[in-house]
Simulated assay, not measured.
Amino acid sequence: MNTIRTVLGDVPPRELGVCNAHDHLFLSSPQLPGQELREASAARAELAAFRTQGGGTVVQWTPYGMGRRAADLPLLARDSGVHVVAATGLHQAAHYGAELLRRLRGGLAELFVSELTQGIGTSGVRAGLIKVAGGFHSLDAHARWTMAAAAEAHHATGAPIAVHLELGTGALDVLDLLCGELGVAPQSVILGHLNRSPDLAVHRQAAEAGARLAFDGPSRANHATDWRMPDAVRALAEAGFGDRLLLGGDTTTAAARSVDGGPGMPYLLRRVRPRLELALGKELVEHILTENPQSAFAADWR
Results as ranks from 00 to 15, higher is better:
Ala77Ile: 08
Thr146Met: 10
Leu139Met: 13
Arg126Gly: 05
Ser80Arg: 10
Thr52Trp: 07
Gly242Asp: 05
Gly210Ile: 10
Glu286Pro: 03
Gly106Asn: 15
Arg271His: 13
Leu178Thr: 01
Gln53Glu: 15
His142Ile: 12
Leu213Arg: 02
Arg244Phe: 05
Ile130Cys: 09
Thr52Arg: 13
Glu110Phe: 10
Phe50Arg: 01
Ala206Tyr: 00
Leu167Val: 07
His155Val: 11
Gly97Cys: 14
Arg271Leu: 12
Arg228Ala: 13
Leu165His: 02
Ala93Ser: 15
Ser138Phe: 12
Leu191Asn: 01
Gly242Trp: 04
Leu90Phe: 13
Leu47Arg: 02
Glu46Leu: 03
Asn292Arg: 09
Glu115Asp: 15
Leu47Gln: 04
Asn292Pro: 06
Ala256Tyr: 00
Leu236Lys: 04
Leu177Cys: 02
Ala254Cys: 10
His24Ser: 00
Glu286Thr: 13
His155Phe: 10
Ser197Val: 02
Ala211Trp: 02
Gln31Tyr: 08
Gly264Pro: 02
Glu36Lys: 05
Gln187His: 10
Met66Ser: 04
Met1Ser: 09
Val163Pro: 00
Leu194Asn: 00
Ala21Cys: 14
Asn195Glu: 07
Gln187Lys: 05
Gly262Thr: 06
Gly217Pro: 01
Val85Arg: 06
Gly17Thr: 09
Glu181Cys: 08
Ala171Leu: 05
Ala133Gln: 05
Asp231Lys: 11
Leu194Arg: 00
Leu182Lys: 02
Asp260Cys: 11
Ala162Leu: 06
Met1Glu: 09
Ser197Trp: 02
Ala143Asn: 07
Trp227Asp: 08
Leu194Glu: 00
Gly262Gln: 03
Ala48Ser: 12
Phe112Tyr: 15
Phe241Val: 07
Asp260Pro: 03
Gly168Trp: 02
Pro263Val: 07
Gly55Ile: 05
Val113Phe: 09
Glu277Cys: 10
Glu110Asp: 15
Ala93Cys: 13
Val184Leu: 03
Tyr64Cys: 06
Asp250Cys: 08
Ala153Trp: 04
His223Lys: 12
Arg228Tyr: 11
Leu108Trp: 07
Ala299Gln: 11
Glu238Ser: 11
Ala49Tyr: 00
Leu276Asp: 04
Gly261Asn: 08
Arg273Trp: 05
Gln205Lys: 11
Ala143Met: 10
His83Met: 12
Asp23Phe: 01
Val125Trp: 09
Gly124Asn: 10
Gly262Trp: 00
Thr169Tyr: 07
Ala254Ile: 02
Ser219Pro: 03
Trp61Ile: 13
Val184Gln: 01
Glu152Trp: 08
Arg38Trp: 06
Leu177Pro: 00
Gly124Gln: 09
Leu278Gly: 12
Pro30Asn: 09
